[in-house]
Design a protein around this nucleic acid. Structure first.
Lengths: 191, 191, 191, 191
DNA sequence: TATGAATGAGACTTCATTCAT
DNA sequence: CATGAATGAAGTCTCATTCAT
């Protein structure tokens, strides 16, 4: 039941936007009465909190899952594969992504975004570890990399500028590779 | 008087957030009656529109102004100087930056953001022009660069992760320099 | 509940006039909260629309019903009976009649008035049909007759000039009879 | 100055309707400031009162004046001439007539309408006096006649049903003549 | 006198939340 | 548990009126 309500909430949020994310509408969408909603959630805030929790958990899982599929790929493909995975996860419900990132107050995403970033950062750390002895602080580098990948991926999904998916993947790979090591980017591209 | 109201609006927005950006509160803050507000703005939407217009114009001007101060610096300092300027502009009112980027519906910023990005992009193009014959599409590269600089700067200002300002500037310079040309990053750093 | 609200609205309208026909007052009168009103009507306009619909439907029905009671009367009584019926219908709530005809914007009555006039006109046509071959255009004559009967009846109800009901009925009958045919008015009076 | 304001008020009333007959709009139209308005009228109510006073005085004068032009006409033309005069007076500003009769609360017109009716009634009485020994109460008859003429004229002007002006005049003349005396209507038509 | 900015009461409407059934 | 009608605080906006200049 909680499930049903959260799903309805997600539908409303994605379809109608945060300003019309209204309890009655969610109840309607869930096929229940507004009163019932309050038997599963203390208030609207709690519903939104749970909803966002799910959204980010799912999104994180999608990234992870997509990556798992490629674990056997040659190590040089790590970056492009990660980007691909990230894009795919974000694209899964881009309407919702837009509302979540642009309208829902950030505090509902904060914790989850941190967690997601850490997950991705861990992948990155592993990648970096075996690579450059790096004079620059590792944590700063990861922060920069993860933030850049995240921001660019989200922007690309939401704005669909005149850039193909492959182009984007290639560019981000170059960005990462050059930034990290100055090594030949072609290597990172898995050629 | 328009000034007074816009200022009050800005205060409320920065201090109380978008959800409490309410006409009566703005009027209170401006020390006027709710009715007076409507002698200067057709409705709340217009007030917000003007407010955002000002905010982004100011922010853009700050970037430009900060850069103008450094025009005489050696060309290799362009990137770090631009980043510095951007950071300074964003930092000027980080409370407001947070609300503007995270809570106010995106449509109020859209036009202005595009304009600001173009300004920055133009700087970038000039930089790139004299530098790499670049095999990769220039427009894609600019998009990536500007999006990355913007996103990372905003995030740094809002989250204040454990990274010093200098460190950030240095990292972003490296990011840009390596991405653009693979040239020696030290050059871009102005050493 | 719609019933309760419409009734309250009618009371307010009749008692306080159109200028004070205000949502909170109607809600008060109905013994509900202002919010409840909006669970049954999209907005104030819809409430008024429904209210007027009811008012004119009722008024029309009253005319019809009153006439039906007299169907067995001699044909010569048609006109006085119709006038009687009309008066009785209008008198039923003369306070409301006043507000409806004098204050409520005409557009809320327009459609219903047309319908009511047609009903009355049909009676008239039947009456005229079996009577005079009439050289004058029938439609003009009906327009004149119906408009005159309506206007005079309404005025009499609202102003209560020093004229008795019987007097009025007699005069209107004469007016109609003479206008229509020039025949002996006594006939129409059912003597 | 009072003149100027009243004229502006009339313009606004006719053009925008009673609901938008608003002090600031009237002041605008008069080319003065809202404050000034209150130097000539205690409040909005007084302005409207004066405005209506003027409107009805003028309308009455128009009827009278139009009739005066025809005093030399043969006596049998009295009724059609009176109707013509009435129509002309009402038509002079039918926009305003509509608002005055349909939207402005009746109490602003009441006194003036009574006076106007009396004027017309006086004409009628004179007409009737020299004509029928009338078994029916003269005052009742006048009331009926005047009310009918007024109502039909107003309705015709406002609704412009498919009836020509000449037709209307003819019909009303017939109505009056037959009602009053049963005399040959052609006589009243002035043939 | 004229101004017109300022006022603030009050109208319409929405929506998170409750509670009797 | 479920319901859904009822609530009422709160938000946006209008407009008759005032008052310092």
């Amino acid at each position: 039941m909680v499930e049903r309500i959260v799903t309805a909430g997600r539908t409303v949020l994605a379809r109608d936007g945060y300003a019309r994310f209204v309890t009655t509408r969610v109840a309607d969408e869930a096929g229940i009465s507004p009163g019932s909603l309050y038997q599963y959630f203390r208030n609207k805030d709690e519903l939104l909190t749970v909803l966002m929790e799910r959204y980010w958990a799912e999104t994180g899982d999608r990234v992870t899952a997509a990556l798992a599929d490629r674990l056997t790929a040659p190590p040089g493909r790590l970056v492009p594969d990660a980007v691909e995975a990230l894009l795919r996860a974000l694209e899964h419900d881009s309407q919702l992504l837009r509302v979540v990132t642009e309208e829902v107050p950030r505090r509902y995403s904060e914790v989850h975004l941190h967690a997601l970033r850490r997950r991705i950062q861990d992948l990155g750390s592993a990648y970096l570890a075996g690579r450059t002895p790096g004079e620059r602080s590792g944590s700063t580098r990861s922060w920069v990399l993860v933030a850049a990948l995240e921001a660019l991926s989200v922007r690309w999904v939401l704005e669909q500028p005149g850039i193909t998916r492959d182009e984007l993947v290639r560019e981000l790979t170059v960005l990462v590779a050059h930034y990290v090591g100055g090594a030949d980017p072609r290597e990172s591209l898995g050629y």
